[in-house]
């Protein structure tokens, strides 16, 4: 790692470095192509369940991995794990290695699942709650459908995203 520790910590602790599950759900539903999700759990956990569009770099491989071949600096890299620890370690490491456009999913996959399954109580629902409910519902549906897909279809999904990304970059002529 290189750089000024104070500066790195100020950057990684800033609000911009954290995405709540609701913020991420909005981006997932909108199929935001400026986002790059990195799942830091083991390959087995990733295969069982992951957020649509995420790539898997198990944390134990993260430090030794050639991050330049995984992290596209033109995209915002969002790290997540089961909870907050490993994703925040990775955020500091990536920032220390010079990748500035990084963030973490606050609370990890646990918080993601809890938030998406939150029920609203009461007879009346505000406009804001309604918007949240809709986004969470769509994100939950995408998440469930994606994780119920057979492996072959998931691979096609990733391949199609790669082609789309290359088209945006002017590749695949």
């Amino acid at each position: 790692m290189h750089g000024n520790p104070k500066k790195i910590l100020a950057q990684t602790l800033s609000e911009e470095s954290f995405l709540t599950p609701d913020q991420l759900a909005r981006l997932i539903v909108a199929e935001d192509s400026t986002l790059q999700l990195i799942d830091l759990r083991t390959a087995e956990d990733f295969k069982r369940q992951s957020i649509p569009g995420a790539i898997n770099i198990p944390y134990s491989n993260f430090i030794e991995a050639d991050l330049e071949s995984y992290l596209d600096e033109t995209l915002r890299s969002v790290f997540y794990a089961e909870d907050d620890f490993k994703s925040n370690y990775a955020l500091v490491l990536a920032t220390g290695f010079g990748f500035e456009n990084c963030a973490v999913l606050k609370g990890g996959l646990k918080s993601w699942n809890d938030t998406l399954n939150t029920e609203f109580s009461g007879d009346l629902i505000t406009a804001r709650e309604n918007a949240l409910f809709e986004t969470r519902y769509k994100a939950r549906r995408m998440f469930t459908e994606f994780n119920n897909m057979p492996e072959s279809l998931k691979l096609k999904f990733y391949a199609s995203r790669e082609i789309e990304r290359k088209k945006l970059d002017g590749g695949c002529e």
């Binding site: 925040n88 220390g96 973490v104």
Partner: peptide, 15 residues
Amino acid sequence: DPAETAQIWMVLSQM
């Protein structure tokens, strides 16, 4: 906070 302590742990360890 777990997120804060994780980040600070990594920075201090690397120091």
